[in-house]
Amino acid sequence: MAEPVVNPDGPMGQNEGGDATRRDFIHIAAGAAAAGAGVMVAWPLINQMSPAADTLALASIEFDMSKVQEGQQVVIKWQGKPVFVRYRTPAELQKVEAEGAVGSPAQTDAERTKAGHEKYLVVIGSCTHLGCVPTFNAGEYGGWFCPCHGSHYDASGRIRKGPAPLNLIVPAYEYLSDTRVKIG
């Protein structure tokens, strides 16, 4: 019996020889649309892990510099990270200024502070190597020493020895008054 069992051209029209391209087009288009749908679905699933609007809106903080004693530092928390506010002694200040541009990248101390407020240094207290919090007043350069992998920073927060690739990062901040700073 002659049953029309299957499409004589084959289900995809592939048995018809030279005409295949045109016949395949619709299947390719359907496949492409399916792939496009996959990408469109994937995007929101990936993007949802980006910082949320409330995280992005995290407030800046204000800080009163007069709370820091000479030769000491105060650690404050800003956007989940420690920030070092250091009031340097005249001897420390003289030393870091005399050294000129050092560290990585080479920077003078003046490039890392605000004019008129040179004695205060504000840096993010997280080692540029792998993120540990460096210890205050330790290491060979009298600044900070990172206990995790032995990076030495000077009193200007510049990397002088050890595996850390960069100087301690100076966050964006401004003086609102003579003693009040706004970080962020």
């Binding site: 069992v5 619709i26 359907a30």
Partner: peptide, 22 residues
Amino acid sequence: IFLLMFAGITYASYRKIWKGVA
């Protein structure tokens, strides 16, 4: 709009594949 177009293309593909198949 995308789903409607996708449905149209898939239907065309479906008709082609099942063409002449009882």
